[in-house]
């Protein structure tokens, strides 16, 4: 998905998301931006029932996923029953309102 841009170190190949000023492994400073692609596999999740000020939802499933091309990211799981290892489809949608404006982020659903 073109909205979720990760970075590959040009020297050692380490994949990083979010962006860093130096490679976490080899300290190099040049990166190739690339898009997270493919299905996302659910690594872990939680049912957050005490959301912070600024979010009106009663609960949200939040999780960490790994895309088919190795990018790992946090996202909002819009699924009925999350399960470790399940495959999810990524979407780029509003996840929060900040300063009166929609902020977009990673939303994960089952199916297409």
């Amino acid at each position: 998905m073109k909205e979720l841009v990760a970075y590959r170190c040009k020297k050692c190949g380490l994949i990083m998301y979010p962006k860093h000023g130096r490679c976490l492994r080899c300290k190099a400073r040049e990166f190739e931006p690339f898009e997270a692609e493919g299905d996302a596999r659910l690594i872990t999740y939680t049912d957050n029932q005490t959301l912070p000020w600024g979010i009106d939802d009663r609960q949200r499933f939040l999780g960490i996923v790994e895309f088919a091309n190795g990018v790992k990211a946090m996202g909002w799981l819009k699924v009925a029953t999350p399960k470790l290892g399940m495959k999810l489809k990524p979407h780029w949608e509003p996840v929060r309102v900040m300063g009166g404006e929609d902020v977009y982020g990673l939303v994960l659903r089952q199916g297409k």
């Binding site: 999740y45 957050n48 005490t50 912070p52 979010i55 996840v95 929060r96 982020g105």
Partner: peptide, 12 residues
């Protein structure tokens, strides 16, 4: 931006 909290990181 996702509404993550320290309890939710601990939950994961």
């Amino acid at each position: 931006i996702y509404g993550v909290t320290l309890p939710s990181l601990a939950g994961m």
